[in-house]
Amino acid sequence: MSRRFLKKVVCFLVILLLFMVINNTNLFMKQSAKEPSLLAHRGLAQTFEISNVKNDTCTAEMIHKPEHPFLENTILSMEAAFSKGADLVEFDIKPTKDGQFAVFHDWTLDCRTNVQGTPLDYTMDELKMVDIGYGYTYDNGKTFPFRGKGIGLMPSLDEVLSYFPEKSFLLHIKSNEAKEGEQLARVLATLPEAQLSLLSVYGGDEPIAALKAKLPSLRVMSKETMKSCLIPYILVGWTGYVPDACENTQLHLPEKIAPFLWGWSGKFISRMEKSNTRVIVVAGDGGFSEGFDSANDLERLPANYNGWIWTNRIDTIAPLIQNNKIE
């Protein structure tokens, strides 16, 4: 191998490296005046120490001393979240005995209500009689501040969509049952196109694939859709190319992973938004719905970040964003 040839190879590699750096740096980007958008997880809800949460943890039994009267996944909590500044509210759905969807988080009713079993064991009318505030306590069971106050507060999906026809929501299918995706598709297919465009759905691979097959225009997300977008992007994204699998979807990016993506944050977000894909950054490694919930959390975001932020404390974070606390 000649010295001249080696020199050409080195030159090529240097030029390629410079291209990769310049094409993905944010240093020369025009700063956007757009504020970050806020996703309120479960609306305005009671809080708890998320570092203590495990798969079988009953979070209602470990809440902080209440600072407000709202319970997660209720119309009142969603309304409060929007009034505080949420751009999007996330909520969980579970199928009921009579073929509807109840808005409720837990796999079973045992933890935070006065009945046992799952939502699938009850009709929606029966779930309306359940006290969803029954199990909440902040002092190891000495007091139950919401007991008796949650009767009638568990909404159906139909109620939420009827009450907020012009609001944006992220629906969470908790299971990996394809039939739940098909059931949800039947519900959403009845909505006006304008309202449907305000919704997105995430969940297990099977229900999300079934839902997308029925409603191709709907923005959805699952582990499979994330992988099909991000793996090829990691391979070729340095060129600025966005794979087709990244179009019209949603990405929930843990803050520990996001910085390793080409063009993070400004160029990456711009590329995805041009493909009609929403980029939401979640705290930590993405486990147990960690959010950016304090001023200290916001300091970890990139300078001039203007994507979406996942928060469990919309009441705390919205005022900070409005006062330009991300610099």
Rank of each mutant, 00 (worst) to 15 (best):
residue 1 M to C: 12
residue 6 L to I: 10
residue 9 V to T: 12
residue 14 V to W: 00
residue 15 I to F: 07
residue 20 M to E: 04
residue 21 V to S: 00
residue 22 I to H: 05
residue 29 M to F: 12
residue 30 K to G: 13
residue 30 K to E: 14
residue 31 Q to A: 13
residue 36 P to G: 01
residue 47 T to D: 13
residue 51 S to P: 07
residue 52 N to M: 09
residue 52 N to R: 13
residue 53 V to A: 04
residue 54 K to C: 05
residue 57 T to F: 05
residue 58 C to F: 00
residue 61 E to A: 12
residue 63 I to D: 00
residue 65 K to V: 14
residue 70 F to H: 08
residue 73 N to E: 03
residue 73 N to A: 00
residue 75 I to L: 13
residue 79 E to H: 08
residue 85 G to M: 06
residue 89 V to S: 06
residue 90 E to F: 01
residue 90 E to L: 02
residue 91 F to Y: 09
residue 93 I to V: 11
residue 94 K to Q: 12
residue 94 K to R: 12
residue 95 P to G: 01
residue 95 P to N: 02
residue 98 D to C: 05
residue 103 V to Y: 04
residue 103 V to I: 03
residue 110 D to F: 01
residue 115 V to R: 06
residue 118 T to M: 14
residue 119 P to E: 02
residue 126 E to N: 04
residue 127 L to I: 06
residue 129 M to H: 13
residue 131 D to L: 00
residue 132 I to S: 06
residue 137 T to H: 08
residue 137 T to V: 03
residue 137 T to E: 03
residue 139 D to Y: 07
residue 141 G to A: 07
residue 150 G to M: 08
residue 150 G to T: 09
residue 151 I to F: 06
residue 155 P to A: 04
residue 163 Y to T: 13
residue 168 S to I: 07
residue 170 L to R: 06
residue 177 E to K: 15
residue 179 K to D: 15
residue 181 G to P: 04
residue 184 L to F: 07
residue 186 R to H: 13
residue 187 V to C: 12
residue 189 A to F: 05
residue 192 P to V: 05
residue 192 P to F: 04
residue 192 P to H: 02
residue 196 L to V: 09
residue 198 L to H: 12
residue 199 L to H: 06
residue 204 G to P: 03
residue 204 G to H: 04
residue 208 I to P: 08
residue 210 A to V: 01
residue 211 L to P: 02
residue 214 K to M: 14
residue 216 P to L: 00
residue 218 L to A: 04
residue 222 S to H: 04
residue 225 T to W: 06
residue 233 Y to W: 03
residue 237 G to Y: 04
residue 239 T to H: 00
residue 240 G to N: 03
residue 245 A to K: 10
residue 250 Q to H: 11
residue 251 L to D: 03
residue 252 H to Y: 14
residue 253 L to V: 02
residue 254 P to G: 01
residue 258 A to Y: 03
residue 259 P to H: 00
residue 260 F to T: 12
residue 263 G to W: 03
residue 264 W to Y: 13
residue 266 G to A: 15
residue 269 I to V: 10
residue 273 E to H: 07
residue 274 K to M: 08
residue 276 N to C: 04
residue 277 T to A: 01
residue 279 V to T: 05
residue 280 I to C: 07
residue 281 V to S: 08
residue 283 A to P: 10
residue 283 A to L: 08
residue 285 D to L: 07
residue 287 G to H: 15
residue 287 G to Q: 15
residue 288 F to W: 10
residue 288 F to Y: 11
residue 295 A to T: 09
residue 296 N to S: 15
residue 298 L to G: 03
residue 299 E to A: 15
residue 300 R to N: 15
residue 301 L to Y: 08
residue 303 A to R: 15
residue 303 A to M: 14
residue 304 N to C: 10
residue 307 G to F: 06
residue 308 W to I: 11
residue 309 I to P: 02
residue 312 N to H: 09
residue 320 L to H: 08
residue 322 Q to C: 10
residue 322 Q to F: 12
residue 322 Q to P: 11
residue 323 N to H: 14
residue 324 N to D: 15
residue 324 N to H: 15
residue 324 N to S: 14
residue 325 K to H: 14
residue 327 E to G: 14
